[in-house]
């Protein structure tokens, strides 16, 4: 499986993926400061509020997941290179599982790195130019790191929402990205008085189901 994942990486346009992996954190790392300064100072009322804000901001990594679905699945179907993979001595389920784990790993690692970088950047800026009320407490730090792993996992699962239907079945590039954008902005559900945590749970279920269906139907839906 590790070998198959390594080969997935070799097949990709690596410079483009690395470029994305640099751009996402670079953009996201300044967003908490931007929100506090330009949108509402309420976001900076405490470190706890900023940590919560950071969690929403990192949902942007879902878009990276959609981009990877495009490159790892849809492009292979469009360029017909998927038929090459099917002629190798691996079952379609195994090939798909390797692709999915590969995407999951990249999204998870990027989200963790971006989350950490955003947190550190915001803290450093606050030390130079105070924008957050109050001090950073031990409890804030524990919350920050525990949420870093937990939320990265949630974001990773959510990034697979478009995989089965739009990625493998319909092989549609733009709708996959649009779906990623919608999932990324799921926190806006609070504006219509929906419980965000419940929305996240539903999205995680949909994401998990999408992964499950992608693997178990690999033989039929995944056929050329």
């Amino acid at each position: 499986m590790i070998k198959l994942m390594r080969l997935e990486w070799k097949k990709l346009k690596q410079k483009s993926v690395i470029g994305e992996m640099i751009c996402y954190p670079l953009i996201l790392m300044f967003l908490p400061v931007f929100f506090i300064e330009a949108v509402s100072a309420d976001f900076g009322q405490s470190y706890a509020a900023v940590i919560e804000l950071n969690l929403f901001i990192q949902m942007g990594s879902i878009l990276f997941g959609a981009s990877l679905i495009n490159q790892v699945f849809i492009d292979e179907y469009k360029n017909k290179t998927i038929s090459l993979s099917f002629s190798y001595p691996f079952s379609r389920q195994k090939l798909f599982a390797a692709k999915i784990i590969f995407i999951a790993l990249l999204v998870f690692l990027l989200t963790m790195a971006s989350y950490l970088l955003t947190g550190v950047t915001t803290y450093v800026i606050d030390q130079i130019h105070p924008i957050i009320n109050g001090d950073l407490t031990r409890s804030d730090i524990i919350t920050f790191f525990s949420q870093m792993i937990f939320r990265s996992l949630i974001i990773t699962v959510n990034s697979f929402i478009p995989l089965f239907y739009l990625g493998i079945w319909k092989r549609a590039t733009v709708p996959t990205v649009i779906c990623g954008v919608v999932a990324m902005n799921s926190h806006l559900s609070q504006m219509i008085n929906l419980n965000f945590n419940l929305v996240l749970v539903v999205l995680c279920v949909v994401g998990s189901l999408s992964v499950f269906l992608s693997i178990i139907t690999a033989e039929n839906i995944g056929e050329m």
Binding site: K80, S83, S87, Y88, P89, F90, S91, Q93, E219
Partner: peptide
């Protein structure tokens, strides 16, 4: 689909 290991003994160009 479960036993594709024999494909290591096959080379191909299709289409």
């Amino acid at each position: 689909e479960k036993n594709k290991s024999i494909l290591t003994r096959v080379g191909s160009i299709i289409e």
